[in-house]
Amino acid sequence: MKDHNHILHNVDSDGIDRRGFLKCMAWAGTGVLWTVSGGVLVSKTLAQITKAGSLPAVTDLSFLQISDSHIGFSKDANKDVTETFRIALDRINAMPTQPAFLLHTGDISQLSKPEEFDTFDQVLKSCKTKDVFYVPGEHDVINDGGKLFRDRYLKSVEGKGSGWYSFNKNGVHFIGLVNVLNLQAGGLGQLGDEQLEWLEDDVKGLSAETPIVVFAHIPLWAVYPKWGWGTDDSERALGYLKRFGSLTVLNGHIHQVLRKVEGNVTFHTAMSTAFPQPEPGKGPNPGPLKVPAEKLRSMLGLTSVQYKQGKSALAVIDSNLS
């Protein structure tokens, strides 16, 4: 990806210029509704929406992205990640309309341990929404190339290769990609030839009007390659998808909300439910960011996505756990 800047868009009908956009980025921690229409970006804080009673009108499909649970992590940045995961589920259960399903964009576990996956599964039982679609994070595949992860989380989707798959919901085509396996020394995330060939074939028969949602763990755009926040062969994947009028790319991995809009493509990363990470390049390394206890939950969260037929864009809402 040529442009490593993670903020591209500026003026729209809502009067948000680049400075305004940066302000929105700051709001992200307190919950922002993003809608993108033909590349035009509109944002409102969740507080504004609630006050105005202007939540999006009835949608055809509402789903939720949850990411980076890191069950098993117990360091200073968050000594009880199981509890914050549980709080995230409580937030989902409290939604007036339950999402159709969850997308978990990886790093369920900290160290790929069976007991970490067990804890996750046990806590997840409290979630009213039962359908969950997964892609692995690099923390989920540390010791066995992802076998345990596939055995546990991809049974219902008949994952191809190392676990990629697609499915359709309400006219939207969803594609779960794996970019955390067979990584090469010195490289970034990687999809690999086999998966890319499958992707090309998977979307071949779809009309350009089909809304596409791609989800994978490591960002499919160059957020900050120096920290490994990017995918080496993502350009090729996006090449197969550029003809579609609405493409939403949802990732995790970097434990913060970042967004980039390029034409009809919206890239979006979600918060973690476990601990925040530094802004790109801010700090010595991308490890867990220690924040004051009272601030932690404001930096953890969920992403809700809504689709309405006939609209070219999907509305993406981030909300934190504070």
């Binding site: 540390i142 990584l183 020394a185 010195g186 970034l188 490994g228």
Partner: peptide, 12 residues
């Protein structure tokens, strides 16, 4: 012998 971290392959 070259080696790397498979979780963070930038580390070599």
């Amino acid at each position: 012998y070259e080696y790397f971290c498979s979780v963070h392959p930038k580390m070599t």
